[in-house]
Amino acid sequence: MPAPLINLIVFLLGGALAGIVFWPGRGLLSRSRRGRMLASRVQLEDALKHIYHHEAREQTCTLSSLGGALETTAARTIAVVTKLQHAGLARVVDGRLVLTEEGTRYALEVVRAHRLWERYLADETGVDPQEWHARAERQEHALTRAEADALSERLGHPRFDPHGDPIPTADGSVPVDPVVPLSALEPGERAVVTHLEDEPEIVYAQLVALGFYLGMVLRLDARADQRLVCEADGRKIVLAPLLAENVSIQRLPAGEADVMVSVESSLADLDAGESAEIVRISAACRGLERRRLMDLGLVPGTRVAFDQRGLSGGLSAYRVRGSIIALRDEQARLIGVARSQRVKAGEQA
């Protein structure tokens, strides 16, 4: 029997090697799998999408912009474009890349798969918003037409993805809404966020970190050269004009907005013995989770009282309509209550 020390060392080295090769997501095996995926069809589809997005924004698409988007060499880019031409999906006109009708149809299918998958991730899984786009980028190539149709049906034929982009329908039409960026607001105006641009990713990540989400109601307080100051969900947000360009909003008529912005505290702020009335459930609470909360009786107008805190932290129990419901802090924070209505036990409500 070889010395135990040698055994242990061999074992640890072997374990490290196995980890390097097999670690999910970062190991050699999964990297090579991703590399292989970057072959043919995936690149073609990404190219189609790129050209399509440029056309939708009425920008010109050249070989160099495509090469940058695909992150590949000029030679490879030319190969991809040649394949597109042969397949009758795209044409080169005056140095610009243009999609044919067939190509547009194909691109729309890919875009549809992408946005449906983002909608699915947002509504039915707990995946972090910053990961939606990256995951959908991978999944859009894997979904067949039939699978996309089934997914759309299961989600209830959603009209928009969680960034607010319209989801192309099965027959290839895209509902178009006029886009108003946040930077177009005047101080004092109120609006609701309808779209968050998901590329470039750094900008989107910053927006999410600042607390932006679809359906958020905000009011523009002030604007200066390098910054805009908004108020939403009871706190102030400062952002650069570049970020504001990527947020699309819809102006709200004055009366309606007043009710919504007055919420200043959430269920998570309730202390022992306090009760309050629910004003609204934040739009950041989506899909299945939102429905479940409402089914349990947490709807605007309901009186909720704090009952007790979980012993290992992280969640609390509340008395709702005669029953006791336990919610985690993240969920309680999404339920807005009216501060002036917070009442200690024994006081008149």
Binding site: G25, T125, G126, L293, I324, A326, L327, R328, Q331
Partner: peptide, 12 residues
């Protein structure tokens, strides 16, 4: 991998 899902429990 994934974010924690929602937890809503009725305590009878």
């Amino acid at each position: 991998k994934g974010e924690p899902s929602s937890f809503s429990l009725e305590i009878p």
